[in-house]
């Protein structure tokens, strides 16, 4: 009797699963999940009203430390596209979430898996992935979105993915993308003009977020407060960094808002450098809700720091 009941319950559960999974979870809009807020902004810019975009990060998190919330799973389960930074940026939370989502459309190798790093030539690809070098990214530094020119590569990848899953909207997507590109290109020209004063300026940051930004605007990225990627600084490392900064006239200390202020502030005080807090994705600090606003904020803050130091 007990086994008969068990069999009936199991059969009912399976039938319900198949019936419910056949119900379309979304209407006409394309459901997009992005890992970070910059990608969400680009997806919204291309998709407009035709897409429903969810970002796993809200903007204040560390790009490598978005909490692995089960509430992400249902929305990932019904997503048509999963847009990610790639280059192992999301390795701490995304693989497990993807598996838990049970959504074959967004698994690697399928059209719904959109790696925005495709076409980006990565910087700082490590020769070894040995942990003595810290939590290194085996494919290279993944923070290319802080270079607005490389953000255009991400934009292109998102556009291609949207055009693949919804070719009926390609005209709208093209028009939206072109409009956004025109705005972005104008802003890039503006940022490059403003950033002329940044050329050759040396700076340090807490985590290695800024090599692409430094290269784009001609800055000299001197080092990090972290001992190695993901490894907190030791007293000796801070001492050596401080001495080197003084000797090399490093004038700016960048603190990403998800890291504690105490150590960057102390280093800035000891070296006479200017401490600035810069977001690493939209929403990281107030008035940076979009990618362009965020880049505006970063360039303006850097320029102001340099001018204040003169």
């Amino acid at each position: 009797m007990k086994f008969k009941l068990l069999r009936i319950v199991l059969t009912l559960l399976l039938m319900t699963a198949f019936c419910l999974s056949a119900i379309p979870a979304y209407a006409n809009k394309i459901t997009i999940v992005t890992t970070l807020t910059d990608l969400a902004d680009l997806a919204r810019a291309i998709g407009g009203d035709l897409v429903e975009v969810h970002s796993l990060a809200t903007g204040v998190e560390d790009t490598h430390g978005v909490p692995m919330k089960p509430s992400f799973v249902p929305v990932m389960n019904r997503a048509d596209l999963l847009i990610l930074v790639g280059l192992d940026c999301e390795h701490a939370f995304l693989p497990a979430l993807m598996e838990a989502s049970k959504n074959p459309r967004i698994q690697k190798g399928n059209p719904g898996y959109v790696d925005c790093s495709k076409g980006v030539v990565p910087r700082d690809v490590p020769k070894s992935t040995d942990h003595s070098e810290g939590d290194v990214h085996p494919y290279g530094n993944p923070h290319y979105m802080l270079d607005p020119v490389l953000a255009k590569t991400a934009l292109s990848n998102i556009f291609n993915a949207m055009a693949t899953v919804a070719p009926q909207y390609i005209a709208e997507f093209t028009s939206n993308r072109d409009a956004y590109l025109a705005t972005l290109n104008a802003k890039i020209a503006q940022w490059e003009t403003k950033a002329k004063v940044l050329k050759g300026v040396k700076f340090v940051s807490y985590h290695e977020h800024w090599p692409y930004f430094a290269e784009r605007f001609g800055m000299n990225y001197f080092g990090t407060i972290e001992l190695k990627p993901g490894i907190d600084p030791t007293a000796r490392h801070i001492e050596e960094l401080t001495a080197a900064m003084k000797a090399q006239h490093v004038t700016i200390v960048v603190r990403e808002p998800q890291f504690p202020e105490k150590t960057p502030k102390r280093i800035a005080e000891q070296t006479g450098a200017t401490l600035v807090t810069l977001p690493i994705m939209p929403g990281g600090v107030p008035n940076t809700e979009t990618y362009i606003k965020m880049m505006d904020y970063i360039v303006n803050t850097m320029v102001a720091a340099v001018q204040a130091g003169k």
Partner: peptide, 14 residues
């Protein structure tokens, strides 16, 4: 394991 296809996260395992 079955992820119940609703808005909230509900997971059932037997």
């Amino acid at each position: 394991n079955w992820l119940v296809p609703i808005e909230h996260y509900v997971s059932l395992t037997v």
